[in-house]
Lab assay of single mutants.
Amino acid sequence: RPFRVCDHKRTIRKGLTAATRQELLAKALETLLLNGVLTLVLEEDGTAVDSEDFFQLLEDDTCLMVLQSGQSWS
C-alpha cells in the first residue's frame, strides 16, 4: 500500500509502499537516512500509529511522520 512519509521537520518527503507497519518503518529508516528507534505518527495531528491493527485501517496515501527518539510532532 502507498504512503507519504516525512521527517519531523517536514523537509524530506518520500512516497513509500509497505504492507505492514514494521515494513514501513524499515523502509523509512533506510530512505530517510534515520537511525535508532522510530515512532510513526499521522502528519496531520500527531496521532501515534503504534499498532498493526490501526496501521491496517489507514487509507492509501496517508501522510505519516517518522520521529526519532527525543523528537516530537509539531
Score class of each variant (00 low, 15 high):
residue 9 K to A: 08
residue 60 D to K: 12
residue 46 G to I: 06
residue 28 A to D: 03
residue 71 Q to T: 06
residue 7 D to K: 02
residue 53 D to L: 07
residue 57 L to G: 14
residue 24 L to D: 00
residue 63 C to P: 14
residue 57 L to P: 06
residue 47 T to K: 10
residue 18 A to T: 03
residue 53 D to N: 08
residue 55 F to R: 05
residue 39 T to F: 06
residue 13 R to T: 15
residue 33 L to V: 12
residue 6 C to G: 02
residue 40 L to E: 02
residue 3 F to K: 05
residue 42 L to K: 14
residue 73 W to M: 00
residue 11 T to N: 11
residue 60 D to I: 07
residue 59 E to N: 09
residue 20 T to C: 07
residue 46 G to H: 03
residue 57 L to D: 11
residue 50 D to A: 08
residue 27 K to A: 09
residue 56 Q to G: 11
residue 54 F to W: 11
residue 38 L to I: 05
residue 25 L to C: 10
residue 37 V to M: 15
residue 73 W to C: 05
residue 24 L to M: 06
residue 24 L to F: 11
residue 38 L to E: 14
residue 36 G to V: 14
residue 54 F to S: 13
residue 73 W to N: 08
residue 74 S to K: 12
residue 73 W to R: 03
residue 66 V to F: 03
residue 61 D to Q: 10
residue 42 L to H: 08
residue 12 I to Y: 13
residue 70 G to Q: 07
residue 66 V to T: 03
residue 52 E to R: 01
residue 71 Q to F: 03
residue 20 T to H: 07
residue 68 Q to F: 04
residue 64 L to S: 06
residue 47 T to L: 06
residue 27 K to P: 02
residue 25 L to P: 00
residue 41 V to A: 10
residue 24 L to W: 00
residue 31 T to N: 10
residue 33 L to A: 14
residue 41 V to H: 05
residue 39 T to W: 06
residue 54 F to A: 14
residue 7 D to E: 02
residue 73 W to H: 06
residue 47 T to R: 11
residue 69 S to M: 09
residue 55 F to I: 00
residue 46 G to V: 01
residue 66 V to E: 03
residue 51 S to D: 13
residue 50 D to M: 08
residue 45 D to K: 01
residue 31 T to W: 10
residue 41 V to M: 06
residue 61 D to W: 05
residue 73 W to G: 02
residue 46 G to S: 01
residue 20 T to M: 03
residue 51 S to H: 08
residue 30 E to N: 13
residue 45 D to I: 03
residue 68 Q to K: 11
residue 6 C to L: 06
residue 55 F to P: 06
residue 29 L to A: 14
residue 67 L to Q: 03
residue 49 V to I: 13
residue 73 W to K: 03
residue 12 I to P: 04
residue 57 L to A: 14
residue 13 R to D: 05
residue 7 D to H: 01
residue 51 S to Y: 07
residue 31 T to A: 13
residue 60 D to C: 05
residue 69 S to E: 14
residue 29 L to I: 14
residue 35 N to P: 12
residue 63 C to V: 13
residue 56 Q to F: 04
residue 61 D to A: 08
residue 44 E to T: 12
residue 13 R to Y: 15
residue 54 F to Y: 13
residue 37 V to H: 15
residue 67 L to V: 03
residue 34 L to N: 01
residue 33 L to M: 15
residue 42 L to V: 12
residue 27 K to Q: 10
residue 28 A to C: 10
residue 13 R to E: 10
residue 31 T to G: 14
residue 34 L to G: 10
residue 59 E to Q: 11
residue 59 E to I: 09
residue 44 E to D: 07
residue 45 D to G: 02
residue 62 T to A: 15
residue 56 Q to D: 11
residue 23 E to K: 02
residue 57 L to N: 13
residue 12 I to M: 15
residue 64 L to D: 03
residue 40 L to N: 04
residue 46 G to C: 01
residue 68 Q to M: 12
residue 56 Q to V: 07
residue 22 Q to E: 08
residue 49 V to D: 15
residue 58 L to F: 01
residue 53 D to R: 09
residue 28 A to Y: 02
residue 55 F to L: 06
residue 66 V to I: 09
residue 13 R to M: 15
residue 15 G to I: 15
residue 41 V to K: 04
residue 69 S to L: 10
residue 33 L to E: 15
residue 44 E to V: 08
residue 46 G to K: 02
residue 48 A to V: 12
residue 51 S to K: 08
residue 28 A to N: 00
residue 6 C to A: 04
residue 25 L to K: 10
residue 51 S to A: 07
residue 35 N to F: 08
residue 33 L to K: 14
residue 20 T to K: 01
residue 4 R to Q: 07
residue 51 S to V: 04
residue 69 S to K: 14
residue 32 L to E: 04
residue 7 D to Y: 01
residue 38 L to M: 10
residue 69 S to A: 15
residue 34 L to E: 06
residue 4 R to K: 04
residue 3 F to L: 09
residue 9 K to R: 09
residue 31 T to P: 11
residue 64 L to R: 00
residue 4 R to L: 07
residue 40 L to C: 11
residue 34 L to I: 08
residue 63 C to F: 08
residue 1 R to V: 02
residue 73 W to E: 02
residue 36 G to Y: 01
residue 62 T to C: 05
residue 54 F to I: 12
residue 30 E to K: 14
residue 57 L to I: 09
residue 48 A to K: 14
residue 2 P to H: 15
residue 15 G to C: 13
residue 74 S to I: 06
residue 5 V to C: 04
residue 2 P to F: 15
residue 69 S to Y: 11
residue 67 L to D: 02
residue 3 F to S: 05
residue 22 Q to I: 10
residue 39 T to C: 08
residue 5 V to L: 12
residue 64 L to Y: 03
residue 64 L to I: 05
residue 17 T to K: 08
residue 36 G to T: 07
residue 48 A to M: 13
residue 67 L to S: 01
residue 47 T to H: 07
residue 10 R to N: 05
residue 36 G to K: 08
residue 50 D to Q: 12
residue 6 C to P: 06
residue 45 D to W: 04
residue 25 L to M: 14
residue 56 Q to Y: 07
residue 56 Q to K: 11
residue 13 R to V: 14
residue 72 S to A: 03
residue 65 M to Q: 00
residue 56 Q to S: 13
residue 58 L to Q: 05
residue 23 E to T: 04
residue 72 S to G: 08
residue 59 E to C: 06
residue 66 V to M: 03
residue 70 G to L: 04
residue 1 R to L: 01
residue 42 L to S: 05
residue 3 F to I: 06
residue 49 V to N: 04
residue 32 L to R: 00
residue 62 T to M: 07
residue 73 W to F: 08
residue 47 T to N: 06
residue 37 V to T: 13
residue 20 T to A: 01
residue 60 D to N: 13
residue 39 T to R: 13
residue 12 I to H: 10
residue 59 E to S: 12
residue 51 S to Q: 07
residue 52 E to F: 01
residue 3 F to N: 01
residue 27 K to R: 11
residue 60 D to M: 08
residue 25 L to Q: 11
residue 56 Q to E: 13
residue 54 F to E: 14
residue 60 D to E: 11
residue 63 C to Q: 10
residue 62 T to N: 07
